[in-house]
Design a protein around this nucleic acid. Structure first.
Lengths: 263, 263
DNA sequence: CGCTCGGTTGACCTAACTCAACTTGTGTGG
DNA sequence: CCACACAAGTTGAGTTAGGTCAACCGAGCG
C-alpha cells in the first residue's frame, strides 16, 4: 500500500507537496497511502476527528452535512482537491461527511505528520495557507450564492459554470445525478426538474444528463442580475500561479470563474 | 501613526503575531498602523484587492455582500479577529465588504510584509494556517446553519450562542441593532420581530436590546433538532440527552465506518 | 415479465417575504 | 419648550417561492 516510485513522482506534483522541502516530503510520504476506493466511502465523518488528510487524485468527492435524507450536499470536489484540510490542521472534528465516489483514487497523509512538517517547513506551511485561503473563498462564495440568489438563478449560474468549464461547448454533461445536483443547489429534485423546464424559453434543452445551451447569453442575463456575487475583478494575469490556484478552487466548489461575466 | 512601545506589547499578544519570530515581528510591525476609526469605515471593499490585513482590536466589524440595500450580512466579527485574511494571503479581491463600527480600533499590517514574513517564518505561517482553518470552519458552519435550519431555529440557536458567550447569564445584550441581526440570520426585520414573539412561549423575553432567557433548556430543544451543525462543545446547560441523541442518530443512520459498503 | 429507481408532472401547502399602517423613542429646529 | 421629522421596531394582511405528497413514466435488470 505504500507509495512506489511512480506514485512519488505523481504525488510530488500536488500543489501542497510541490512546495514541501525534500525533508518534509519524505516525512509526509513515509506513511502516506494511495488507494483506489471501490465503493462509496466516507473519507471523513461529520463530528469525528479524522486522523489523516485525504487528497482526491481521481474521481470525485461530495461534502455532505446532516442526517442522510435530510442532509445537504455542500460541495462536489474535483481531483487535486484536499478534503477538509482545515479540520486536519486543527486536529478538530470534521464539519461534514466526505463521500468519495466509487472508483475514486485518494492519497492519504497522516495528519500528525502534516502538522509536524508544517511547523518547520515554511514553504509547506505557506502552501497550506494558500490552499486554505482558496477553500475559504470557495465556501464564502457558496454562502453568498445561497443567500443572495434564488433557485432559478443558482441553476442558471451553475449551468453557465459547467458551460465555461467544458470549454464553452454548447452541449455539456452534468457531472452528477440530478438528485445530488439538486441537493448541491439547495433545492428539491422536483424543483430542479421544474427549474430546467422554466429555463427552456432561455434556450436550455435537457436530455438525460446532457444539457444543451442554445443561447448562453440569455442565461447569463438571468444569472447576472445579481452577479456581484462572483464579480470580483478578473484574476490578475501578472500572477499566473495564484490565478491557477484560484481557478482550481473555483472548479472544486462548482461556482463560476468570471472570465468576463459580461454577456 | 506608527506603533509605540505600549502598542507593540499589546499587539504582540495577538495569536498571529505571538507565534512570529522576533525578526518577522519587527518586519510586520514596521509599517503597521493602529488606529481608531471614528465613523463607519470599510476595511475591505467587495471586489477590490486590499493592500493590507486588518485585525480588529476593539469594537466590531460586519462582513456584508451584495449591493447596499439588497446586501446580506454574512458575519459579525469580534475583537481579535482577522478581517478577510484569506484574501490577503492570496492577494486576491475581497469577497465581501468589511464595515468597521464607529469607535472600533483596528491594526493594519501591509499584506506584502505578511506574505513575505510567512514565507520564511514557519511558526507564523502555521499560525496563519490555524487562523484560516478557524475562519473556514466558521463559514462552513454558517453555510450549514443556513441550509439545514429554518429561521426560528437559527434565531433560537443564535440566542443560545450569545447566552453561552456571555457566560450563561440569563440576561443577554444583543450585540447589534435588530435590523442587522435579522440580516445576519438571513431573515427580514419583520420576520425577526415575529420570531421573537413566537419564542415567548419558550421563555424568551425581549426588551429593546436586552433579552432574557427564562428557560434556555426549552430553547435548546428547539435548536437541538439538528445541533450537529455547530459541534463546538456541548451547551453549558448540561443536556444529558445530547450524547444519546447523537449516538442514536448515528446508529439509526447506520453510519458506516470509513470502510463502508453501500448496500 | 414485473420490479425498482431516477426523474417528471400536477395539486396543494406553508414558511417566509412584501407592503402598508402604526408605535415609540430620538433628535432638531423654531 | 413644543412641534416635527425620522428612524427602529412592531403588527397585520396578502403574496409567493419553494417544499411536500402522490401519481406517473421510462429505463435497466433480475
Amino acid at each position: 500500500m505504500s507509495l512506489d516510485t511512480a506514485d512519488l513522482i505523481r504525488v510530488r506534483k500536488l500543489p501542497l507537496l510541490d512546495a514541501a522541502s525534500a525533508d518534509s516530503f519524505a516525512q509526509l510520504t513515509r506513511d502516506a497511502v494511495l488507494q483506489s476506493v471501490s465503493r462509496r466511502t466516507a473519507l471523513t465523518l461529520e463530528g469525528e476527528v479524522s486522523p489523516s488528510l485525504s487528497i482526491l487524485m481521481e474521481g470525485s468527492v461530495a461534502l455532505e452535512s446532516g442526517r442522510d435524507g435530510q442532509g445537504a450536499t455542500l460541495a462536489l470536489l474535483e481531483p487535486l482537491s484536499t478534503v477538509m484540510l482545515a479540520s486536519v490542521v486543527l486536529d478538530a472534528p470534521a464539519l461534514v461527511t466526505a463521500w468519495a465516489a466509487p472508483r475514486s483514487e485518494v492519497l492519504t497523509i497522516p495528519g500528525a505528520a502534516l502538522r509536524l512538517a508544517a511547523r518547520t517547513d515554511p514553504a509547506l506551511a505557506f502552501a497550506i495557507s494558500e490552499e486554505l485561503s482558496g477553500c475559504y473563498s470557495g465556501v464564502v462564495r457558496a454562502l453568498k450564492n445561497q443567500r443572495l440568489r434564488g433557485t432559478l438563478e443558482r441553476l442558471a449560474n451553475y449551468l453557465l459554470t459547467q458551460h465555461r468549464r467544458q470549454n464553452g461547448a454548447t452541449r455539456l454533461t452534468l457531472p452528477s445525478r440530478k438528485r445530488v445536483l439538486a441537493s448541491l443547489l439547495g433545492m428539491t429534485p422536483e424543483n430542479l426538474s421544474r427549474g430546467f423546464a422554466s429555463l427552456a424559453p432561455l434556450g436550455v434543452e435537457v436530455d438525460g444528463p446532457i444539457v444543451t445551451l442554445r443561447r448562453p447569453g440569455d442565461l447569463a442575463l438571468l444569472a447576472a442580475a445579481d452577479s456581484s456575487i462572483d464579480n470580483h475583478a478578473p484574476f490578475d494575469a501578472a500572477r499566473p500561479g495564484q490565478a491557477d490556484r484560484e481557478r482550481r478552487r473555483f472548479k472544486a466548489l462548482d461556482f463560476p470563474v468570471p472570465e468576463d461575466a459580461r454577456p
